[in-house]
Amino acid sequence: MAPVLSLRNLTVEIPTRHGVLRPVDSVSYDIVAGEILGVVGESGAGKSMAGNAVIGLLNRPARITGGEVWLNGARIDNLPPEGLRKLRGKRIGMVFQDPLTSLNPLLTVGDQIAETILEHLPVSRAEARERAIAALEEVGIPAARDRVDSYPHAFSGGMRQRVVIALALCAEPDLVIADEPTTALDVSVQAQIIVLLKRLCRERGTAVMLVTHDMGVIAEAADRVAVMYAGRLAEIGPVADVIQHPRHPYTAGLMGSTPGASQGQARLTQIPGAMPRLDAMPPGCAFHPRCPRRGPGCDIDPPPVRAPDARAACHYPLTVAEDVTA
């Protein structure tokens, strides 16, 4: 199956007075229709930046300096701004982190959904309104017909995130980029939102890039997971494999420090040190100063993604024999 989204060596750079920073460095991955790819990493690992690069909403002076972005077999990173604008909302939907701030407080939720529909689909105003009501019903807003003319402040946080999801999906996009969609929500609401997002995208065959730092969300929702570290892809693979049999030492460390991900373990471990700052990136593998498995060559060449299983970007990946759960 041809992937809906394909990143090929995507590189984003920010020129500064002290040199060029590279928040996203040669990242490649595919997402196929109906698949949810979890993108996980610490803050500053470049996971959101990659999502913003895909929809062309990087804040200046950050810009794509290398690699390609393909959407359904067409290259989109070199489109003019107007071309990208037409893709946004129509082919690529976006869900932001904080539902309290991502809706315009002065427009009714119905108006905001209808204006998005009118922008992208050839329908009348009345039809757009009907579709807005249907969209609200679909995301589980009770009494949608009565509430379509309410303003965002009349909704709770979880309900607003449902509205945001309705907005992201209202023009039937092929891809949804969900940037930390549950981080700002109550724990009790998080699961509902994830289940909703998962169900809607499954039904429509929408591909999802689910950016989060929450391994629990990944385990719950994603089919595959991409682990990012310091702007680079550390490891990518099916969720169960990556969680239970990590190949990259960073992933192994991440799992060891996540409650619940590593069953049967008495204590949570921690990875010594901190992720390097973008302006002080070590040579070679960015993780090697903190890596328990570093060896010759780690401080010279950044490793490509390779064996075993073509999953981890590591010179000395964990082997099957070392699996935590083995």
Binding site: L57, K86, R88, G89, F96, S102, T116, E119, L167, A168
Partner: peptide, 20 residues
């Protein structure tokens, strides 16, 4: 955020600037 979100929904600059 809601301006970023308006852009992410593919609204035209004019709508983003004046309506939102």
């Amino acid at each position: 955020d809601y301006i970023r979100f308006a852009r992410a929904r593919g609204l035209r600059d004019r709508a983003v600037h004046f309506r939102h």
